[in-house]
């Protein structure tokens, strides 16, 4: 459902993604691992359509359409979801209103009727349970004053509400204690269906004990340098990345 071919992207005049290719089929879970600064978040942001990054080459096809030609909101409306590594704070907009606007925008794009605030609150009840969040969190401004863990859970809550076809989770596990990690992982697993796919970007193998990947890819210096099954994650845990990552100078 997602085919990334030789994707290049830069920010400013710095090349960050330097030829990424990846195929994701429905029902699959892919893990992307790699050292800090290797371009994992950049890949995720490019797929979501962040205008700060410029695609300089390659293509991304999503369900047969050119994903890169779509506006960020159109991508979301088509079922692409990115859980941000650093969720954004929005003072003055309540979480409830934000979620409902998003939910209704996506419904409208699918030709479905909008739901009113009461119906929406009903719908939210189960979703909140899923990520073990208190309803009180809905009346607070988006991510304002949320702890690191609360922000991550709020991302998964948004995912639960929007029910994407392809979810990109960018280090949703970092900074979480084991209980929070389990909550987040359970949330993700509960939302898994045979016709949707998940890409988990992570630094640590431990998340993959909970969200079991079909494939593991290692990203270094803007390229996928190795792919394998879940045993690769264990190998990385034991050996680190050094054996895969050439010194950057040698790449040219």
């Amino acid at each position: 459902m997602l085919e990334i071919k030789d994707l290049h992207a830069k920010v400013g005049d710095r090349d960050i993604l330097r030829g990424i290719s990846l195929d994701v089929a429905p029902g699959e879970v892919h893990a992307i691992m790699g050292p800090n600064g290797s371009g994992k978040s950049t890949l995720a942001q490019v797929l979501a359509g962040n205008p700060a990054y410029e695609v300089t080459g390659g293509s991304v096809t999503y369900q047969g359409i050119d994903l890169l030609a779509l506006q960020p909101e159109e991508r979301a409306q088509q079922g692409v979801f990115l859980a941000f590594q650093y969720p954004i704070e929005i003072p003055g907009v309540s979480n409830a209103y934000f979620l409902r606007s998003a939910f209704n925008s996506i419904r409208a794009a699918r030709g479905q009727e909008e739901v009113d605030p009461l119906e929406f609150l009903d719908y939210m009840e189960k979703k909140l349970e899923l990520v073990d969040m208190d309803v009180e969190m809905l009346s607070r401004s988006v991510n304002m004053g949320f702890s690191g863990g609360e922000k991550k859970r709020n991302e998964i809550l948004q995912m639960a509400v929007l029910e994407p076809k392809i979810a990109l989770l960018d280090e949703t596990d970092s900074g979480l204690d084991i209980d929070a990690l389990r909550i987040v992982a359970n949330g993700v697993n509960a939302l898994k269906r045979p016709d949707n796919a998940t890409i988990v970007v992570t630094h640590y193998q431990r998340l993959l004990n909970y969200i079991v990947p079909d494939y593991v890819h290692v990203l270094a210096h803007g390229k996928i340098v190795k792919s394998g099954d879940k045993s690769l994650a264990l190998e990385l845990e034991a050996k680190g990345y050094d054996w895969l990552v050439e010194p950057q100078g040698a790449l040219a």
Binding site: G49, P51, E73, I88, I90, A102
Partner: peptide
């Protein structure tokens, strides 16, 4: 800009 992108990435026009 970042807040705008965040909202758009959730489907908001």
């Amino acid at each position: 800009e970042m807040a705008l992108f965040y909202m758009k990435s959730r489907g908001v026009s």
